[in-house]
Design a protein around this nucleic acid. Structure first.
Lengths: 217, 217
DNA sequence: GCAAATTAATGATTTATTCAAG
DNA sequence: CTTGAATAAATCATTAATTTGC
């Protein structure tokens, strides 16, 4: 029986061990020269091509992340204490708050309010220092509208409300009247959104590595 | 090391999830008051400013449209004529040319070298015939480096060396020499890799992934 | 025991984001 | 605003584990 061609690469145990070792050592996205070298070495243990190595790292990294993601989400949900109970959907209708005019003050930093921030420790985010200048570079898009607004201090209050109501607050943002001069009687009933899909297509986690010597693996 | 300032806003996963949810819920061009509220709420999960929200919706909407356009065009073309050829990804306009990506050499089969193969008998492995065609399919990832490599025959020798030195050879893969065109004379002295794990600080490229704050989402 | 039927893993592709240059 | 490059996310597809009926 001709073993015939397998449609895809099947790593031998040795190859796998080595790849994992490299991964544990910190390699995540090997550059071409690394892929080349790795491929050459691994070819000692079985047929292999550079793309296999490339894909392997891509997949391994991605699936590693995926795992972490799931864990994080779990944690998030716990932190956020939310009850899948009633998701408001009563307001919405057509009573508009006195949605008043546009106030692009949102180009200002959120006042001085320094909320407790993210529930999870996130390796990213912490600082966010605007690189000084380019801030204004943020461009020509609108920037030149006459609106001028300040974020009210009472945001703090809203803040707490948010926590209380869990995610229902999203509705609050949506009821906002006609974003512009149209759609007043639009067809879109603003279907109830399903809160938090958890599908979370992204979460950054990982970065990880560098723990090279963590040995334990 | 100080994550330092990122020159731009890096949405945390939570922020992103919420923004996407709002988008899915119908918000496309939030007015100032909405932006303000959203900003306030999102600031719970990390630093954020109104402009970030503004830009996010701008971009997301634009790219969404773009996406749909492309898909439609694709479908239309497929319906009318169907070539097994590769899917075009560009047309619509008339004056750009997208050249196909040359795929990096490691996507090519390792020359003809057929090494002595795996020492262990494994249920899988035996032949590994590339399925011929789809080979080229792997594409746009990065692949456009001019490198071209063949698996040298002398791997055999290396092989023995590897055995002698145990895993030290792994270091070789990690040192990552100057990948190729770039990095010449730059500020990066390409520090001599300190061998192996420990310190991990070298592993440059690999960890590369946007580490931490560079966001990915 | 052993295969057909299912399911779990994971290799390979495709699609979407992100970022930096024009 | 546009576009190329790089990468990550999502998805497709095949292989190997496993379950199940005989």
């Amino acid at each position: 029986m001709s073993p015939a061609a397998s449609s895809r690469w099947c790593p031998t145990p040795e190859q796998l061990m080595i790849l994992e070792e490299l991964y544990r050592s910190g390699i995540r996205t090997p550059i071409a020269s690394q892929i080349q070298r790795i491929t050459v070495h691994l070819s000692l243990y079985g047929k292999i091509e550079g793309k296999n190595v490339f894909y392997w790292f891509q997949n391994h990294k991605a699936r590693d992340r995926q795992k972490l993601r799931k864990k994080l989400i779990k944690q998030l949900q716990q932190n956020h204490i939310y009850h899948p109970d009633r998701h408001l959907q009563e307001n919405q209708s057509n009573h508009h708050h006195h949605q008043h005019h546009p106030l692009p003050s949102y180009f200002n930093p959120p006042a001085s309010t320094s909320p407790p921030f993210h529930p999870l420790s996130y390796h990213n985010s912490p600082v966010f220092l605007p690189r000084g200048g380019p801030e204004g570079a943020a461009t020509q898009m609108m920037m030149n509208h006459p609106w001028k607004v300040e974020i009210p201090q009472n945001v703090q209050m809203e803040n707490s409300l948010m926590r209380m109501y869990g995610q229902d607050w999203m509705m609050m943002m949506m009821e906002v009247g006609p974003p512009s001069p149209c759609s007043s009687s639009n067809t879109r009933p603003l279907e109830t959104l399903e809160l938090f899909p958890i599908t979370a297509t992204n979460l950054k986690e990982e970065c990880n590595n560098n723990n090279i010597s963590s040995s334990s693996n």
